[in-house]
């Protein structure tokens, strides 16, 4: 078994109301520390995590988008965003804090098929 595995993280939930978005990110950062191959996909309402101008101080939480911006520093460069979800919310890449590659269902299917581990939150 190779030491380096391919991990795909699929983050499907918005930030703040539940822990799902931040748990998914924490798991990816932990995997990144072990220098694994990481793909991070914002799918469905998960794309809302990427909106610019977030400030969650007033609700007593850390601003998730600020933490998402650290992904490239952890060597996580393969970041994708579900194009259908962006369209559904009438958003485009200028609304997002990270440069993400567009991904559709068939590209995500192919990514899952070549991953050793998939975390879907």
């Amino acid at each position: 078994m190779s030491v380096k595995q391919t991990f795909t993280f699929i983050s499907r939930s918005p930030a703040y109301a539940s822990q799902r978005a931040s748990l998914c990110l924490e798991a990816a950062l932990a995997a990144a520390v072990f220098e694994q191959e990481i793909h991070y996909v914002f799918m469905d309402d998960g794309v809302l995590q990427l909106l610019t101008d977030q400030n969650s101080q007033a609700i007593g939480q850390k601003t998730l988008s600020k933490l998402l911006e650290t992904l490239p520093l952890y060597g996580v460069e393969n970041i994708y965003v579900d194009t259908q979800a962006l369209a559904k919310h009438a958003l485009d890449s200028a609304d997002l804090v990270l440069d993400a590659q567009p991904i559709d269902d068939s590209q995500l299917a192919a990514l899952i098929a070549r991953s050793d581990q998939v975390l879907n939150l």
Binding site: M43, D44, D105, L108, A109, A113
Partner: peptide
């Protein structure tokens, strides 16, 4: 439906 959209 979401799952089947990315299942192969």
């Amino acid at each position: 439906a979401q799952c089947l959209a990315v299942a192969t």
